[in-house]
Computed example of a mutant assay.
Amino acid sequence: MENIVLISHGGMAEGVKVSLEMIVGQQEHIHTVSLRPDGDNIQFENELNEKMKALNGSTLIIADLLGGTPCNVAVKNYLNVEDVEIIAGMTLSIVIEAVVNQQVSIKELIGLAKENIVDVKAGMNKAEKDISEANLEAELSNFSEYAGKANIVNTRIDERLIHGQVAGIWSTSLDTQRIIVANDEAAADPLQKSSLRMAAPTSMRLSVLPVTEAAENILSGKYGKQRLFLLFKNPTDVLKFIEAGGPIQAVNVGNMSYKEGAREVTKSIQVLETEETVFETIASKGVNVTAQLVPNDPVIDFMKKLRS
């Protein structure tokens, strides 16, 4: 859809848009119309119609609640308009999908909404009982022919590891088959491993490994021809991976939060002086270091930005 209009009671629509843009960046084609606490159906209808008249092209209206005033007004005015679709049951997950995948069907959006309603505690317990990494790799017991031929589609530094940008945007846009989280602390923490398994897309395999083991596995060809997404928590882990022989030609810096003494390089990246030194060492090894929050954002020369 060329336009998406979020409609809701109160501030929900605007709140979803704000949350969306935290994950995928600013979206000029996302619009909101709210039924104000002091408003009524007439106020809402006037504002929705005014908004729709200003838009060109196909439009998807996403309402907060089936049977609520915003949804009812949209149906009354646009039920028989050919290039307008209307769905109810707004969630952040379906809005993200509608934004990043403009070819997605209404049926697929509704299916995604159902899939994203999860009993997290039950899922965590199940994840903790998953079979070991060694058993997961049984299918690739003879992997020597793939040694040195790893198919790495992206290498990213993201302090939050697996979250919306990684799971919902980067991984899917790159047709990732396996996410490899390389971090010693995460690999040693059963709770964190279970949490990462819950956050990863169900269609993708996940390995949470100590940094050196991740390098060894990739070098040995353990994952065959799988499209690999390497995920690091910080630049120190990246350097450790490289020094262990891990094959990295480029690294994308996504999110590094503020710490005492850090300076801002981009809005989402705050770097300590010690980390600047690590980045310089990584770059000196011939690795191209860029910054890019989501695939649609322009690619920034991170080292140039860091040194400016």
Rank of each mutant, 00 (worst) to 15 (best):
E2M: 12
N3M: 03
I7A: 15
I7D: 04
H9R: 15
G11M: 06
M12P: 00
V18S: 08
S19V: 03
I23H: 03
G25Q: 14
E28A: 13
T32N: 04
V33K: 10
S34R: 08
D40N: 11
D40Q: 03
L48D: 00
K51M: 12
K51A: 08
L55Y: 04
S58L: 08
T59C: 05
L60Y: 06
I61S: 01
A63F: 12
T69I: 11
A74L: 14
K76R: 14
N77A: 14
I87R: 14
A88N: 08
I94Q: 04
A98T: 01
V104M: 12
E108L: 09
I110V: 10
I110L: 11
L112Q: 07
M124D: 01
A127R: 10
A127L: 09
E128K: 15
S132K: 12
E133V: 14
A150Q: 03
I152A: 15
V153I: 09
V153E: 00
T155D: 04
T155C: 13
L161M: 09
I162A: 03
I179L: 15
I180D: 02
V181S: 00
D184S: 06
D184P: 05
A186I: 08
D189L: 14
D189G: 11
K193T: 03
S194M: 06
S195T: 04
S195Q: 13
M198R: 05
A199E: 09
A199K: 04
A200H: 03
T202A: 08
T202M: 14
S203Q: 12
S207P: 04
A214R: 00
A214H: 02
L219P: 02
L219E: 09
G221Y: 10
F229T: 01
L230T: 03
P235I: 04
T236L: 10
D237W: 12
D237R: 07
F241Y: 04
E243N: 15
G246R: 04
G246C: 02
Q249R: 15
N252G: 14
N252W: 01
S257G: 09
A262R: 07
Q270H: 13
T281W: 04
A283K: 09
A283D: 06
S284E: 11
G286R: 09
V294N: 02
D297Q: 13
P298C: 07
V299C: 10
F302G: 02
M303W: 03
